[in-house]
């Protein structure tokens, strides 16, 4: 566990600038909250709040798709994996780092959302349930992108992730919601995107369990592939 924590913290440290950019959008929402009249601009604020959720997922995918590639390209991975660190631990460390980054982002979003949307019949518990769904969706999306990044460059890993997460969502619209739940990253995000004032959200335990289970499966599959890859050859 210590190795995973060390790699995770190192990842967050290395990605501090993208994380700060991500956080600055939440900061902008907070600044908006200082100056707007919620009665007239409530829908606009809610729209931006939902948009921030999409950014969270997008960043999780980018983090996941580029994490291994960056370490391999700079050859920094050699010093890390020359220590008593297994490949699975390394992958787990990266995912834990992404979880910390997206967790921090979702927490900041939750705090800001609770404050900005206060008095608009949008309960704090509702917001925090949505944030829990967002974290799960981010983690699932990041795990899928890490899986693709074990054998693809970041561009193709991102595209692969978009296809794998997007196809069930599209199928869900055409063939019924069951299909959308096959890989439920979009279904979880959709709860945030479709949320409305005055609505009461019940936590989607089934979707959450499915997302958690699939995250574990994709993580194990990513580790299995990565354990069989030659990491010291050119990455481009």
């Amino acid at each position: 566990m210590r190795h995973i924590a060390l790699i995770a913290i190192n990842f967050v440290r290395e990605q501090r600038w993208p994380i700060l950019v991500l956080m600055s959008w939440v900061g902008l929402l907070a600044i908006m909250g200082l100056f707007i009249n919620l009665r007239t601009a409530r829908d606009d604020v809610l729209f931006i709040f939902k948009q921030l959720g999409v950014y969270g997922i997008a960043f999780a995918v980018f983090f996941g798709a580029s994490a291994i590639h960056n370490d391999r390209k700079t050859r920094r991975i050699l010093a890390v994996l020359s220590k008593s660190v297994g490949r699975r631990q390394y992958i787990s460390g990266l995912l834990a780092g992404i979880l910390i980054a997206t967790g921090m982002y979702s927490f900041a979003m939750g705090v800001t959302g609770t404050w900005v949307l206060r008095g608009s019949h949008f309960s704090a518990s509702h917001i925090w349930l949505l944030m829990a769904c967002l974290v799960l969706a981010c983690l699932l999306a990041a795990t899928v992108s890490v899986l693709f990044s074990t054998f693809m460059n970041p561009l193709f890993a991102t595209l692969g992730t978009a296809v794998l997460l997007g196809v069930p969502a599209l199928a869900g619209r055409q063939l019924g919601s069951w299909w959308a739940h096959a890989i439920p990253a979009y279904s979880l995000l959709e709860l945030l995107l479709e949320t409305a004032v005055g609505e009461t959200l019940r936590f989607p335990w089934g979707l959450a369990a499915l997302a958690a289970g699939e995250t574990i499966l994709f993580w194990l599959f990513a580790a299995w592939i990565f354990e069989r890859r030659d990491i010291a050859v050119a990455v481009d």
Binding site: R75, R76, L78, A79, K83, V85
Partner: peptide, 13 residues
């Protein structure tokens, strides 16, 4: 590997 020290060519830190 925990009992090994390794320095790669063109060290990257």
């Amino acid at each position: 590997r925990s009992r090994v020290g390794f320095l790669a060519e063109n060290v990257a830190l």
